[in-house]
Nucleic acid binder design. Structure first.
Lengths: 199, 199, 199, 199
DNA sequence: TATGAATGAGCGTTCATTCAT
DNA sequence: CATGAATGAACGCTCATTCAT
């Protein structure tokens, strides 16, 4: 968010402007899709002049990225601690915790998550997934030692990661109510635990 | 492919033209993404006049859809028979068979599959997935009786379906070589069987 | 109609083709206006191939002209005789006769006449009016000697001619039922007779 | 002119742009007819970017309408007063006054009036004539009581209105010099007075 | 800092017309 | 004689972006 912005807003008024723009951008993206996602429309909807928009964002893509970035919780200290605590838990407890986090993350603002999943092609989709991947990778590093010894740990990791991610993603799009349903959480845990624990 | 075409090519020359157009469309989509997917570029690349393009396709979207349709194997008689034969198999055997089919389908032309997954947003993606969904749904109807009794069969089905689909999709995009790797197939089977068979 | 056609249809089948084309042209003109009056649409509506159309008409304009020509009664022998007979009548009788002819001409196919008046700009409107003008001019040559001596006979003629023509035209467009109403005819006669006769 | 514009020009520079566009539009319409009346040509001739044109006019038709509107004198207070004064005049004086106004209106800018009459089909012609119709209708309300009692007053009105309008229109197109010729005015008055006063 | 005005490249699409069969 | 296929020029219009106030 910082990296790609032309200049940082120094006054609160400017902060507002940026927020207006991003809100408008979200609205436009939702309402008219990626094709209708035009700087002119965004500016108009935001009630700011198109030139003002370009004062904060160097180009259209930057808006899209800022939009995505705004909805990813940046990992903080709490995260590191949480990660640390996982080490001492059982496989099932770890998985349960991970699944919980994934569900919570998406349950927080499912419409926004869905927006990106629905309108953006894979290529355009922002680091979001990278972030997630990274986190899950770290977690996996904790998980693997607790799991059966598969031939190719990378492969197990890959499957675990994407199965979880995408089943949640599909739920975001098609069964958002499940995101807070304990039964769903239980099934997800079953899916992963049984896979990792092995036969 | 037929449905959405403006008029059917009658002469072989015309058939060629349509093929050129679709080939070019694939090329353009791969090379410049959905944003660069313009009728003018497609026509130019195809070496046909833009008007010829519009003689066969009523608009841009139709080309995209034709492109997707061209790469879906239409279920045939063999499919029905195969489906029938599943009934008498064990859970594990059924899953194995299903996973095999999924892998084969994508292994056949992974670049093409990836093309769509990478460049098209969910919304634009054609019935392909619907097809797949339908098939997997039928299969699931066979699978469920052989599985543990979950609280919500719909949920189990949902998870099974998307876990398989998307792990394969991600493999298409990032580990295409796995599509023919027996180890990958074995892990996938493990994922699903252990989930369905229960805890 | 003959003059501008590329080749004369020799067989009855060809005659039909030409008729189909003109019928379709009329339909298209009525339904989509002059802007939608395209050779492709006409051919399609006529059920003939576009190339066949071009075998009979050298270009689009020719169709439009043929269409207009088809609906002008070409002056024949009866006309000359009728004209001759006018010479011996009184002013009022002549005017009555002229008004009758004008009304009959337009009453015959008012929708067609209206079509041209509504959709074609003055410039594009075919010789129709020229024809009419010519006839009315001849008639005027008979009328004038029977009328008062105005300062500028050309002017009187101009006014008489256009007043009649356009009042009828407007009636065609907005009060087609008047075209056969004796009261309307009587008023038109009054308009012209009182103008020509008097003070 | 205001109604159909996308946004109002705020700076004088913008005002100029709009004027340039309308001037160019008039030129193009005159020079190449309605068929050649393309937004690209207009913009080029106006020396402004095509996008600027679209910033002020939502589409091609709007330009045409603005062009027509620009040349209709909007009825003002003077008009109402003039109308009032007619009430106390004799039939002949009223008609004379009305004819005068009609002639003056068209004499003011005959080429412009001709432009519309020649190039635009009836359907496309703007409210101009409606305006005129409305005014003449009001006037007719004053005229009729002073006239003979015809069977169908609506019919008399119709004839009076269109005879005047179209004879003037034809004069605009073919005898513009007559618009200021007292003889022409006298003949027009004769046409209408003798019709209304009756036989 | 924010606004109105301007711009050029390009897009999707249709048209009148001609060529090959 | 009639058809299917092809073509190039043009059209209306929008986009992301920059300049002048």
């Amino acid at each position: 968010m910082i990296a790609k912005m032309r200049k940082l807003p120094r006054q609160t008024r400017a902060h507002q402007t940026v927020d207006f723009i991003l809100d408008a951008a979200a609205y436009i993206l939702a309402e008219r899709g990626l094709a209708g996602f035009t700087t002119n429309h965004i500016a108009e909807r935001a009630g700011v002049n198109i030139s003002s928009l370009y004062q904060y964002f160097p180009n259209k893509l930057a808006i899209l990225e800022a939009l995505q970035t705004r909805h990813i919780a940046t990992p903080d200290d709490g995260y590191a601690q949480w990660l640390e605590r996982l080490r001492d838990l059982s496989l099932e407890e770890v998985v349960r915790s991970v699944v919980d986090v994934a569900l919570e993350m998406h349950a927080a603002n499912p419409t926004m998550h869905r927006l990106f999943l629905d309108t953006l092609p894979r290529q355009t989709r922002h680091s979001h997934d990278d972030f997630e991947a990274d986190r899950i990778a770290r977690i996996a590093a904790i998980l693997l030692p607790k799991s059966r010894a598969g031939k190719d740990p990378d492969m197990m990791l890959f499957i675990t990661r994407h199965a979880l991610t995408w089943v949640v993603h599909e739920a975001v799009c098609e069964r958002p109510e499940w995101l807070t349903d304990p039964a769903f959480r239980k099934e997800l845990v079953a899916l992963l635990v049984n896979f990792l624990r092995a036969d």
